[in-house]
């Protein structure tokens, strides 16, 4: 301790204090302040860039999910449209079929009606012709048979017996 106190130089202490004080002030002004400020700026810049990248990534994710959603919607829409179209087609076919059926039925019915009426007309004509024929025949027979009166009568009677009118 004695030795130390003896070695202690007040002058050196004083010089050191002044030098250190000046050095601290100078270094603060010319070195530490700009250095620390730049470091902080840089770190903040890096942090900002990282944040921005994170943000962009998130946005990207959002965009991607949006896309996915839109795509899904589009797919669903397409499916719906396809389904609708198919249904429409089916409906149309069914409609057409039933229309055709109805038309066909109608035509058949008409044909049948026509056939029936033709048949009636034909039968009526046949009846008329038969009646005419029978009148003609009867005339001929009557002419022949009129010569022979007995025979005439007999013939008329047998003929009439034969012909049955329906």
């Amino acid at each position: 301790m004695d030795q130390l106190l003896n070695d202690f130089s007040p002058g050196l202490f004083f010089m050191q204090a002044i030098i250190l004080l000046i050095l601290i002030l100078l270094m603060r002004k010319f070195a530490w302040k700009p250095i620390l400020n730049s470091l902080q700026d840089r770190e903040e810049g890096i942090q900002g860039a990282l944040d921005a990248a994170e943000e962009a990534k998130k946005e990207m994710q959002n965009l991607k999910s949006d896309n996915e959603r839109i795509l899904n919607e589009a797919r669903a829409e397409r499916d719906g449209m396809l389904k609708e179209a198919r249904q429409l087609k089916d409906n149309m076919i069914a409609d057409a079929k039933s229309e055709a059926q109805a038309e066909a039925d109608k035509i058949v019915a008409q044909a049948q009606a026509t056939i029936a009426s033709e048949k009636k007309a034909a039968i009526a004509e046949l009846k008329n012709q038969v009646a005419g024929l029978s009148v003609e025949i009867a005339e001929k027979v009557v002419r022949n048979e009129l010569a022979n009166k007995d025979k005439q009568l007999e013939l008329v009677e047998s003929m009439l017996g034969e012909v049955t009118l329906n």
């Binding site: 050095l23 100078l26 010319f30 070195a31």
Partner: peptide, 18 residues
């Protein structure tokens, strides 16, 4: 020695700051 260290520090770190 102290002056030398001080000048050295000033030169080095003001260069860094610049």
């Amino acid at each position: 020695g102290m002056l030398f260290a001080g000048v050295l520090m000033l030169l080095l770190f003001s260069a860094l700051a610049r």
